[in-house]
Design a binder for these strands. Structure first.
Lengths: 128, 128, 128, 128
DNA sequence: GTGGTCTAGACCACG
DNA sequence: GTGGTCTAGACCACT
């Protein structure tokens, strides 16, 4: 199985954090549903060009968080009881559209991607 | 002088990267203008609860990038020739408004802030 | 691996600058070639009797300059695309010979080494 | 009085060290002779765009080394007993010629000035 | 009192 | 075991 994951090896953010976040996001988006089978540690490691230990840590962390279930000899699955509220496809579509608009605007203003993330981080806090 | 900087010590992102990004953003936003005097290394270190070496590194990196000028015995200034294209106040306002809207939507959908950043990162790449 | 590096702790020139210059020179001389593995941070630190942070800074600076590639968990390498024009062995030989002649002459005239460097610095500028 | 001094504020070498070396060199070259009057601290400081304290330190150091004599209210002079063996004009001429040749060669090989100094430093030691 | 260098040593991400 | 970050603190160059 193949997952739409992207990592940036030089962003400063640890690889395992990036992968964890993206998996959480995929569950949230409903692209990973309870019971779904994930790629093996080795498969994913090869696909991302990353050491297996790194992916092991991701799966271990997410199991500890109750989001994944590791069945030895079988595979890794999204937990049935994963406490992730899935976003409805329609909402997701609206969200992505909004994101795309924002990204376009930011790019036209000459911002860099970490700068935009930084701005979001800041506004997130003040809206919380 | 005091700057609106926030750091998260446990976000995985190195502190010095966070501060660098935020300073770049402030320059971009026109809140730090060429010639402006920044807080002293020690002041900012105390304010952020961080070691002064860490701030030293930030200032040094940004000097190497041509954004700051460090004058020993005097202080640290925004470079006159800082190659940062300032965002016009009007554009900035629009940007922030859009960000706030997005943040609100994401929060209402139960997303976390790193998840949203992750989504933006992904869409940024596909739009580039 | 061992590199022919010498530092003077009391020359006024920061140690990290001395090491950086010497590494650049070695690359220039073709004694360090693209792909070559450098000593580990700790090895070189011990060899030079210097703190490992100091060597870390050297490697980091040279990576920022595009001359080295640092791979965490693996080691430090001369960048494949290091923009150093290597001096041909023949030219290098001639250069060293000329240097030796000059050094001998300067010594016979009772000059000190920093004085000679100073003179060179001065003439360099007027020839530029 | 004006002296042919050049300093590089960003070379890493402390300004006072650079000035001291150049003054020693000038004495060595016979351009500063025993009894000669030097510029006042302030004059030299202004000329070099440097703080007066820096020049004060230079004069103080060189007095301690027996090379200068400071007469309060009168001025600063090259010591009569300065233990500097002057280089004969003819030798000096040959030296400078050699230096110029070397500088030209190094420049044609794409070297930087600190690299050449570094090379000289290295060869100096092995010839010593 | 400003920035700059350096140390000794702890802890982390990664292979 | 590799490089990376960060700390606490000493000492230095310079205004």
């Amino acid at each position: 199985m193949s997952l739409p994951l992207q990592i940036q090896k030089d962003s400063g953010l640890p690889v395992y954090v990036q992968v964890e976040q993206q998996l959480r996001l995929l569950m949230h988006q409903g692209e990973l549903l309870p019971g779904d089978l994930l790629p093996t540690v080795r498969e994913l490691a090869v696909e991302l060009g990353v050491n297996s230990n790194t992916i092991s840590r991701v799966y271990r962390d997410l199991q500890a968080a109750g989001l994944l279930v590791l069945r030895r000899g079988v595979g890794t699955f999204v937990a049935e009881s994963a406490g992730v509220r899935p976003i409805r496809p329609k909402d997701l579509k609206g969200l992505v559209k909004k994101v795309d608009g924002l990204v376009e605007l930011a790019q036209s203003l000459g911002m860099t991607s970490p700068e935009l993330s930084q701005l979001i981080e800041t506004r997130w806090k003040s809206n919380a």
